[in-house]
């Protein structure tokens, strides 16, 4: 459309104040009021002593959260490969085992799994000592890492399986026609396409793990949530929870935007 055509167009009529528009502005107003209220509350209850005492702790808690999630997601990614392989296998027993693993870990709460591993394994100390594993299960941190890795492996296996299955059969056949054997076909042809599909689910899983990791506070690990509970149990000041909420939101939102950005970059060649 040329500039002239634009110029000749009559100006858009003023948008009427429909019910939807009023409702929208009222709701936005409520959010703004809530945000303002939060800001005012934080300013009014600003306590430099509290801040200087707990701010470094919150940061160290945030760092613990990031480490815990990063390591367990990486370990889970490794573990998810054989599980996804089992799920896709034509061998009945193998595929059933893969299915059972995924079902158990996705069907039960992470908190219950963590308790079972931390407190449940704790009561098998002599047996664990005999096989030399006690030094690992002694630490709350490594128990949490263990539980989280097993849990996220189940979710990641499903993501991987779904992504591989989303690649059309023709791609496998084409690769075979080019003389590639199955593993080569998987690595060179199928996986690159599958990972584009899997990016968003992987991003979501990472976010779910960040949020889910808050439960380690209950088994004595001082992650961001743990530091928050400690600060609250000392000060009885509600702002301790609000600071944690802001930190978690910032972390999750920046991650979500990063995933969006990566997705835009790697799907540039795809016309959608």
């Amino acid at each position: 459309m040329t500039a002239e055509a634009l110029a000749q167009r009559p100006p858009a009529p003023p948008r009427p104040w429909t019910r939807a528009r009023i409702a929208g502005w009222v709701l936005l107003g409520l959010w703004a009021a809530a945000g303002l209220g939060l800001a005012l509350f934080l300013v009014a209850s600003w306590n430099p002593e509290l801040f200087s005492q707990y701010a470094p702790r919150y940061l160290s808690g945030l760092w613990v959260t990031i480490q815990l999630v990063a390591i367990s997601v990486a370990v889970g990614a490794l573990l998810s490969i054989p599980i996804a392989y089992a799920r896709l296998s034509r061998n009945r027993v193998l595929s059933w085992l893969g299915y059972a693993y995924v079902y158990v870990f996705r069907g039960t709460p992470l908190l219950a799994q963590t308790f079972l591993i931390y407190y449940g394994f704790g009561s098998f100390r002599p047996q664990l000592e005999a096989v030399g594993l006690w030094s690992f299960f002694r630490e709350a941190w490594s128990c949490a890492l263990f539980a989280f890795s097993l849990n996220t492996a189940a979710y990641q296996a499903e993501i991987l399986r779904g992504a591989i299955q989303s690649v059309p059969r023709g791609q496998w056949e084409g690769a075979a026609a080019l003389g590639l054997h199955r593993l080569q076909a998987l690595r060179l042809v199928v996986l690159p396409q599958a990972l584009v599909v899997a990016l968003r689910p992987y991003g979501n899983e990472l976010i779910l793990m960040i949020k889910g990791s808050a439960i380690v506070a209950i088994i004595t690990v001082y992650d961001l949530m743990g530091e928050t509970r400690r600060a609250y149990s000392r000060s009885f000041d509600f702002q301790t929870y609000l600071w944690a909420a802001l930190l978690y939101l910032a972390l999750v939102e920046s991650l979500r935007h990063a995933v969006d950005w990566i997705e835009r970059r790697i799907t540039r060649h795809l016309v959608r």
Binding site: R125, R138, A140, R230
Partner: peptide, 29 residues
């Protein structure tokens, strides 16, 4: 709070209830 302010070099582990602290003492954690 006593442990945290008086034993700075120690690893002070805080449990939700007293029972869990004892359970971990017994386990050797």
């Amino acid at each position: 709070s006593f442990a945290e302010s008086n034993y700075k070099g120690a690893d002070v582990k805080a449990y939700p209830t007293q029972l869990e602290a004892w359970a971990d003492l017994e386990n050797g954690r």
